[in-house]
Amino acid sequence: MTFDRARITEQLGQAASWEAKNRLLVQIARELPALDDADRDDAHRVHGCESGVWMSLDWRDDRLTLRLDSDSRVVRGLLVLVLAAFHGRSADDILSVDFAGWLAQLGLARFLTSSRANGLKAIVDRVRDAASRHLADRPARYC
């Protein structure tokens, strides 16, 4: 599962209006595989969202495996952006990503400021916290 950041950037950059960007997010959402019902439970739920959002993350070979789903199609489109930015990357890489900057470049900064409604900021904060914890937990290799 890979998502092409360059293509997403180009597509959303070309969508001129807010409505066009929202339509594109709904289209992009089709690329996101749905989580199993078993993973759409309270334990995986991200609270503080006006739509249901579920998230699971784990590390394989020091790379983040991120799985996300929502019952809102616009939010699913946003979750594709989160995956494109963070999925499959190392903790160091994750901490260096300027997600807010990318969203601003795409003309979608409003989704981060209204994040209590869509939960995007809560998700990105959780990914970052997980990356920080992963770095702290990892045995030191250079001594």
């Binding site: 709904v26 739509s51 616009v74």
Partner: peptide
């Protein structure tokens, strides 16, 4: 449709 999506549009 999810009400959140409707409100976005």
């Amino acid at each position: 449709a999810h009400p959140f999506d409707v409100a976005q549009f």
